[in-house]
């Protein structure tokens, strides 16, 4: 299992990607897709030095759905800020202390922050223990940090066990 499939989720993703690109499902395409999905991770395995395993796939799916809903809500917030003419925005650069470790979990968290309400990840501190966030309109930055921690970081910690 581990020799033949070093990264099972990558293989699955490649197979689905291949079928989507072909836009049809037939036996021949599935066989070719499976061959590609086994060969490509084997070939690229040496270059992948950031091991990450998803321990709880169902939690990951739940996280994905939560993210979709939050992206919708965040867009309504941004639309309100853009369209209301008189509202003064209060931007801030915030330091967000990280509890999780590992390159993949931090990347997922940073992308989540960039896609959700009024925040963008701008940089990571040199020691990798804090992110710098630009918030578009924030009154209480402690509350923002606490909400990100409780809403996303705890879930990621559970999913990746890090």
């Amino acid at each position: 299992m581990n020799k033949l499939l070093p990264a099972p989720f990558l293989s699955l993703f490649l197979l689905v990607f291949w079928l989507l690109l072909q836009n049809t499902v037939s036996a021949g395409l599935i066989v070719l897709g499976i061959i590609l999905a086994i060969l490509i991770p084997l070939y690229t395995n040496r270059g992948r030095d950031f091991p990450a395993t998803i321990h709880k796939p169902f939690k990951a799916i739940e996280y994905f759905i939560l993210l979709m809903v939050d992206i919708l809500i965040s867009n309504l917030n941004i639309a309100a800020i853009i369209l209301l003419p008189s509202r003064r925005i209060k931007p801030a650069l915030i330091e967000y202390p990280l509890d999780i470790v590992g390159e993949v979990p931090i990347t997922v968290l940073a992308s989540t922050i960039s896609l959700t309400p009024g925040t963008i990840t701008a940089e990571i501190r040199r020691d990798g223990r804090a992110l710098m966030i630009h918030a578009l309109n924030v009154d209480d930055h402690e509350k923002l940090i606490a909400s990100i921690k409780q809403r996303y970081e705890m879930r990621l910690k559970e999913i990746f066990k890090c």
């Binding site: 931007p91 801030a92 650069l93 960039s114 963008i120």
Partner: peptide, 24 residues
């Protein structure tokens, strides 16, 4: 977005005056 934010911070672009810098 991350790369552009990095570039913007690196070039030290003008920010609106009520931006609070809360970095330690």
């Amino acid at each position: 977005a991350h790369l552009l934010a990095k570039a913007g911070l690196h070039l030290e672009l003008r920010r609106v005056e009520n931006t609070r810098d809360l970095r330690a």
